[in-house]
């Protein structure tokens, strides 16, 4: 495994997947924070775990966008030397060189690289709200509802980024 492979995997399969896989559990955790379903002790115990989990997920998705932007993306967009015909090591140019693959850059990468940044912002907001209210969230259904909406937006943005990341890596891997 090359350094490039290692970082590409760390970006998507470690940091990105931690967030995507953890989302459902955290969402259920927030949904279950209902006063009528929990004792005071239960709410306090649940929220302690949920706080740690949500901050870890937020940290993971920040790590995913920063490793993606500052480590992997420069390899993706590197320009080939003039006259080079084998574009295998220059994914952006390899995709754009062929009409049938240009879509993956013009739509997939262009969408992924921008929308991804909404995810860590929304995930951080969610972690903060749960940190701030703690077990009191069980008695605030309106705020819990907005937390779940924000968290779903974070998941949607990360899903787009993850899905197109996988497709683009398949079409033009970073070597």
């Amino acid at each position: 495994m090359s350094t490039n492979d290692l970082w590409t995997t760390t970006h998507g399969m470690v940091f990105g997947f931690i967030f995507l896989l953890g989302f459902a559990g955290a969402l259920v955790g927030v949904y279950m924070m209902k006063a009528e379903w929990l004792t005071t002790e239960g709410a306090n115990a649940n929220v302690s775990r949920l706080r740690i989990f949500l901050w870890l997920l937020a940290a993971a998705v920040w790590a995913a966008v920063f490793t993606g932007t500052y480590i992997v993306y420069p390899w993706y967009r590197a320009a080939p030397p003039e006259g080079l015909t084998d574009l295998a090591n220059f994914p952006r140019y390899l995709l754009l060189a062929n009409e049938s693959t240009a879509f993956w850059h013009k739509f997939g990468m262009e969408w992924k690289e921008h929308v991804a940044f909404i995810s860590p912002m929304a995930a951080t907001v969610v972690a903060f709200v749960v940190q701030y209210y703690g077990a009191a969230l069980a008695k605030k259904p309106e705020i819990r509802r907005w937390v779940m909406i924000f968290f779903t937006v974070a998941f949607f943005a990360a899903s787009v980024a993850g899905m197109f990341g996988a497709f683009i890596t398949k079409a033009a891997p970073i070597r």
């Binding site: 005071t40 002790e41 929304a122 907001v125 703690g134 924000f150």
Partner: peptide, 19 residues
């Protein structure tokens, strides 16, 4: 254990709007 429910919502509103 008790649950404090009277925290003002200002800081939470600030976080959501900032997002």
């Amino acid at each position: 254990a008790t649950i404090e429910t009277n925290k003002p919502n200002g800081p939470v509103a600030a976080a959501l709007l900032a997002g």
